[in-house]
Structures are given as C-alpha cells and as structure tokens.
Nucleic acid binder design. Structure first.
Lengths: 105, 105
DNA sequence: TTGACATGATACCATTTGGTATTATATCTA
DNA sequence: TAGATATAATACCAAATGGTATCATGTCAA
C-alpha cells in the first residue's frame, strides 16, 4: 500500500507540478524545461529524475538530447487512492439522508 | 496556483496517508491515532498539524481531548488539479482516433 | 485539592531535500 | 578533427522534515 510513495513524493514539489503542466501537449528536452525556471539545468534534471521515479514521465533519448514525455497513465494510482474515500462520503450522505427522512416522519 | 502546496505536502508522507484512511468512518483523538503507530504521540501530533494545515482534517476539542475529523471537501483541490490533464488526454485520444480514421481511408 | 491523564510547546538531532558548482562524456557541426 | 552543445555524475551546502525528549498546561475524577 506504500508503493505509491515515489508518486506522491513527486507531486509534493511545486516546481515538479509546474513541469508536468508544461509537458501537456509537448515533449521537452531538459534544457527546454530549464529555460522556464530560474534554476540550474542540473536542478531541473534532478526534478525530472524524481518525476521519472514516480512514473509520471518517460524519457526518450534522441541524439544528445533527452525528450521528457508525460505518461498518460501517470495519475491512475492517485485516483485509485482517492477513491478509497468515495465510499465513505457516500455512506455519510446516506446517513444524512436517512436522518432527514426519519426527522420528516 | 501554488496555494495547493500544503495539501500536496500533507499527502506526501505515508504515515499521514495512513492516518487519513484511518479516519474514514470514525473521528479519533491524538492518542487513539498514535496507538496505531510505532512513534511518539508528539510525532503523530505533528503529522495531524500538517494534515490540518493542508485542510484535510479538522480538530474538535472535547474536554481535554481533541477529536480529529476527516474533511469531506478535502480532496477537491487535488481532483481539480488532476483535471487539468484530462483535456490533454482527450485531445491525445482524438489525435489517435483521427490518425486511425485517416489511415483507414 | 490532588493526582492522573490528554494535549501543547520547545529544544534538539539525524536525514532528506532542493539547490549550486564542477568535471566528465557523448554528440553534433563546421 | 576541433569546438560547441546537451546531458551525466559527483561533491558539497543550507534548509526543511520526521522524529525524540522534556516540560508546561488544562481537565477529569476521587
């Protein structure tokens, strides 16, 4: 149940979340991503490694460049985890509903 | 766009995610939560503070005890953030679909 | 009132994390 | 081939993080 840790960790940094948004639609090299931030290429590369470890992106080598691509299935584990709470909310609403109905009698 | 940071940060720790699962259905005091972990009450309290900062739980005082309650609206900001990618996936599928159709001609 | 109990607050510590700087390697291009 | 470019790898640093220990405060119950 804790195998999601690299994924949750990857999303915990604002720079990395921005990178993900940036990768919607286009694949970008490390240098291209780094151009959008006020930090070193090396720092950006570290973030990309964390994103890769979390399964959020995949890296494709092309010559001396590395294109970073958003992984379409990336968020499935998070959505699954969030769904563990849906049943609870439903039950809560049911409780509320029956309480109201009982009150209306 | 970065006001979600406390929320994402709160979810980045496995202990805190376990606490959230634990709070489905029942409200628990700090001591009750701490009984489920191999760490100090103080450490658990810190985690609960982070969860509270992230808007994931609310704390209700009752006598000398503090009951921690899961916040029903907790995950809405995350779901909203994840939805920023849905349009992209859809567009990707549309691209794929039209490519296939074109190929079939 | 007094002692036990639940929590709050603080100081402190080791590890992780986000970042830089530097050097090395590979690849494109003139 | 030589130089420029894109990335890799490593060492290093400051700050944040997860944890403990300790002491203070408030509340329950006899």
């Amino acid at each position: 149940m804790t195998e999601n840790q690299p994924l949750f960790r990857a999303l915990a940094d604002p720079t990395r979340r921005d990178i993900l948004l940036m990768l919607r639609g286009t694949d970008l090299t490390i240098a291209q991503v780094a151009d959008n931030f006020d930090m070193t290429r090396a720092a950006v590369k570290k973030h990309l490694t964390v994103l890769s470890d979390g399964g959020l992106i995949t890296v494709r080598a092309q010559g001396r460049e590395r294109y970073n691509t958003l992984n379409p299935n990336a968020f499935a584990p998070i959505k699954d985890w969030l769904s563990f709470f849906d049943a609870f909310w439903d039950a809560r609403l049911d409780d509320l509903k029956s309480a109201i109905e009982k009150d209306a009698q």
